[in-house]
């Protein structure tokens, strides 16, 4: 049963990636401006040089031919040449990947820790604690990550001098130190989201009759909360955590730029502004792939969380 489920999901994954690749490629094709104008950067246009560039990037072929050629290269692992750096895209991505992955991992950890923790306390304690958490999450949800980044930089780097203002650091410990403020800025919004989801989901479960029954059987309240309330609330929490990871990836674009971390997100933002087609396409596809894989993992986890959901069922719940 699980083999059939996996086959179906992997086929779906491939289809999603193909559709996304078409959109990514098509969007850049339709966008105004062309890469050769950037390459020439105001210099006099030498028709021969122009033709050479256009030939190198297959810019004179019809759209569909360009797309198929590009897709063929992608599938074989050839991500093309960066227009701005004139070196293979793959190498450029590899150099920037570790910092970005660490940033996302640290942020995800913060989100799950604080999101679930605050939601839990809020649902169980109620009263003033609940109100305080609700106000806090409202602020977090209303603060764009680049605003949070500026505030954090001003307070902890400029005023207090506890953290560096710029750069990604060398070596793991130094990287973690450099990425502390960025990960806080990045996770703030998503902590708000996950806190709300955890709180609602746990309040939902707290009202269930089986929770009252567990209490009536002399189970201590803490055990009731852990084994019957939180446990049963895990479905929405895990789904939202999956979405959070995808959302964090998108937000790295802004936060990495604000902190000058030189990661993948910052690279993507700069490549868009200079029309570095191959880089934008490769990173966009990478993000789509990550999104799809995270969703697959959540779907695979779901039957473990809820035995009523089988692998045979299409999608979760």
């Amino acid at each position: 049963m699980i083999a059939g489920f996996l086959t179906r999901r992997l086929a779906g994954l491939a289809a999603t990636l193909v559709a996304a690749s078409f959109l990514v490629f098509g969007a850049l094709y339709l966008a105004p401006g062309s890469p050769e104008t950037f390459l020439l950067a105001g210099r006099a246009a030498n028709p021969e040089a122009l033709a050479a560039i256009r030939a190198q990037y297959h810019l004179d072929d019809p759209f569909l031919i360009q797309y198929v050629k590009w897709l063929g290269q992608m599938v074989t692992g050839d991500l093309g040449q960066s227009v701005q750096y004139r070196s293979p895209v793959l190498g450029l991505i590899e150099a920037r990947l570790p910092g970005t992955l660490l940033l996302i991992a640290m942020s995800a950890l913060l989100v799950v820790l604080f999101g679930v923790g605050l939601g839990w306390i809020s649902a169980v304690r109620g009263g003033a604690t609940d109100s305080a958490v609700l106000v806090g999450t409202t602020v977090a949800l209303g603060t764009p990550s680049f605003v949070a980044a500026i505030v954090l930089l001003w307070l902890f780097s400029v005023k207090l001098g506890w953290f560096p203002t710029i750069g990604g650091g060398q070596g793991l410990a130094d990287m973690i130190y450099h990425l502390t403020l960025p990960s806080v800025a990045l996770s703030l919004y998503w902590i708000g989201v996950l806190t709300r989801v955890t709180r609602t989901s746990m309040l939902d479960e707290l009202g269930r009759e089986h929770v009252e029954v567990a209490r009536s059987r002399g189970i201590p309240e803490r055990t009731v909360i852990r084994r019957h309330v939180l446990r049963n609330a895990l479905g929405p929490i895990s789904t939202m955590s999956g979405l959070t990871i995808s959302g964090l990836v998108i937000s790295t674009v802004l936060v990495e730029s604000a902190f000058g971390l030189g990661g993948l997100g910052e690279f993507l933002a700069r490549s868009v502004s200079v029309k570095d087609f191959p880089v934008v396409q490769a990173i966009s596809l990478l993000i789509v792939a990550l999104f799809v894989v995270v969703n697959l993992v959540v779907d695979l986890l779901y039957p473990l969380i809820d035995p009523r959901v089988g692998y045979g069922a299409r999608g979760a719940r």
């Binding site: 089986h210 059987r217 049963n232 809820d306 009523r308």
Partner: peptide, 19 residues
């Protein structure tokens, strides 16, 4: 609750944790 007295509820499907 754990020893001297216990209770049976109306709807067992709601009273038992489904997970």
């Amino acid at each position: 609750r754990a020893g001297t007295a216990s209770m049976i509820f109306q709807d067992p499907r709601a009273a038992i944790n489904p997970l």
